[in-house]
Nucleic acid binder design. Structure first.
Length: 485
DNA sequence: TGAAATGTTGGGGCG
DNA sequence: ACGCCCCAACATTTC
């Protein structure tokens, strides 16, 4: 009797360079049949269950994965509920012998894995789990005093050293050629008990706010490689400046693909260094920041909700739903901020330079808790990632590890003028300002009346007046910081 | 992966 | 010719 193995897909929605899949085929070769599952496990995820934009992405990514698996005659079964219960139930019904999966690093995910292994042990299913999805496993790297790194540069140096010496790219997977899929009709599988159809997860919202996203993105493994190729061929050599120009398209757009594991950082690494240059190294540092974020989350799991620096526990954040809403709705009266928030709304994604600007505006100009910004990003980003989101917001708010000092306060007008000097980005996302001269496009509130009139802008009507005076807001923020000391 | 405030320098106008 | 002031331009410090 042939053995049966389940691959549990998690944030590794790809067939190439997938550690657990490779292990599965290397270990079992033609001695087993393979089935794969994905569990929509929002009960396990709690507060950090996927937001709306991520759910949209997941639908298409799973759909793409399902198609790729179908070519190899491997079914992808969709389950929904507490992972340990669902997987155990499923494993029993198909008489599985083995479960293969890759680790995730979110606090909820570690608990989930623990319980899954417990439940499967009870029914005699052997589990094999693997490190995947990061350049370096957090548990494998400590500084010389035996503690976790808290500063990026030494972390990255250690990581580079380790990575160069120990990591080789996995060969292209033969998954599905060696391992045979198990046909649904050959197993005791009841469609009444288990969801089979992706549509049953209802990941696509009823209101069609995702039309621009459909046009811009191609979720799935093939789309991930298309993006990476385009970036490596066209933009990676100018990334050193391109990464700061939100009006250009010289960034990789790889974040959602990476988050869902449609492509691995190893693959990115090896594609990137084919074109090694100063720019390439800067790009790889950003991939390093992603690893650092996951590393920090591993050692400081509470930072999703609480500042890492305890001095921030008493920081006098304000409560002001009115201005929070204006920030969310992209009506702050600062063009670069509003452009970013609209790009987020339309694409489920924002250029990183602008993420820093809008985040600084929320935390420092509006003095609203960074967690409220993190929550909004969580719901609206297709690349929403607990580790990256947490690090990004704590960095901006100045309360994380290796964070920007709180007193570094972005001036949204100067940032706009510096990084979008022609106003390209504003023209794209805030079209009501498109006719303004570049001299005024980042500060319509200071433009002479005639200039506004000629551009067809009526402040307070066609475009909002600034909701704060930046200079005064800056002083207020510095005062607030002082009060915690 | 800032910005504003403050300090310094040096050229030119001008009495 | 000289000192004085003004003010860019740049540098340093502070938040």
């Amino acid at each position: 009797m042939k053995k049966r193995a389940i691959h549990w897909f998690r944030s590794d929605l790809r067939l190439i360079d997938n550690t657990a899949l490779h292990a599965l085929e290397n270990k079992l070769a033609d001695k087993a049949d393979c089935i794969s599952v994905f569990v929509m496990s929002d009960p396990d995820e709690g507060k950090w269950a996927m937001g709306a934009a991520s759910r949209w992405w997941l639908h298409h990514s799973l759909s793409s994965l399902q198609a790729d698996l179908q070519e190899r005659e491997i079914p992808l079964v969709i389950l929904h509920g507490v992972a340990s219960k669902e997987i155990a139930r499923f494993a029993k019904s198909v008489k599985a012998d083995y479960l293969f999966y890759n680790h995730r690093h979110e606090p909820w995910a570690s608990k989930q894995e623990e319980v899954v292994e417990q439940e499967l042990e009870k029914i005699g299913v052997e589990c094999f789990s693997y490190h995947d999805g990061l350049l370096i496993e957090p548990a494998n790297l400590l500084n010389k005093t035996g503690g976790p790194y808290k500063v990026f540069t030494p972390f990255w140096n250690a990581c580079l050293n380790h990575f160069d010496r120990h990591t080789v790219p996995l060969p292209k997977s033969k998954f599905g050629k060696i391992i045979k899929g198990t046909k649904f009709d050959t197993i005791e599988y009841s469609s009444k008990v288990f969801k089979k159809d992706l549509n049953d997860l209802h990941l696509i919202p009823r209101i069609k706010w995702y039309e621009d996203m459909e046009e811009f993105w191609q979720p799935g493994e093939a789309g991930a490689h298309k993006r990476l190729s385009k970036f490596v061929n066209k933009s990676i050599t100018k990334y050193d400046t391109g990464r700061d120009r939100p009006g250009d398209s010289d960034v990789s757009y790889i974040s959602p693909h990476l988050h869902f594991g449609e492509i691995s950082p190893r693959q990115i690494w090896h594609r990137a260094i084919e074109h090694d240059s100063k720019s390439t190294q800067i790009y790889l540092r950003e991939i390093g920041w992603r690893d650092f974020a996951h590393y920090l989350l591993h050692y400081f799991p509470k930072t999703t909700d609480e500042p890492l620096q305890t001095s921030f526990a008493s920081f006098p954040w304000r409560t002001d739903n009115g201005s929070l809403e204006k920030w969310q709705q992209a009506m702050t009266g600062f063009p670069i901020v509003d452009a970013g928030m609209r790009q987020l709304w339309h694409l489920g994604w924002m250029h990183n330079r602008v993420r820093m600007i809008v985040a600084s505006f929320l935390a420092k100009d509006l003095l609203l808790p960074w967690q409220t910004g993190a929550d909004w990003f969580w719901d609206t980003l297709v690349d929403a990632d607990l580790a990256n989101n947490t690090l990004g917001w704590q960095w901006t708010a100045g309360c994380g590890a290796d964070a920007a000092p709180f007193f570094r306060i972005f001036n949204p007008v100067l940032q706009g003028e510096k990084f979008d000097p022609e106003g390209t980005y504003i023209k794209e996302w805030v079209p009501e300002l498109a006719k303004l001269n570049k001299k005024w496009i980042h500060k319509p509130h200071e433009a002479p009346p005639l200039e506004l009139q000629m551009a067809g802008v009526i402040l307070g009507e066609t475009y909002p007046k600034p909701i704060v005076d930046h200079s005064a807001a800056r002083q207020r923020a510095l005062q607030a910081l002082k009060s915690t000391k």
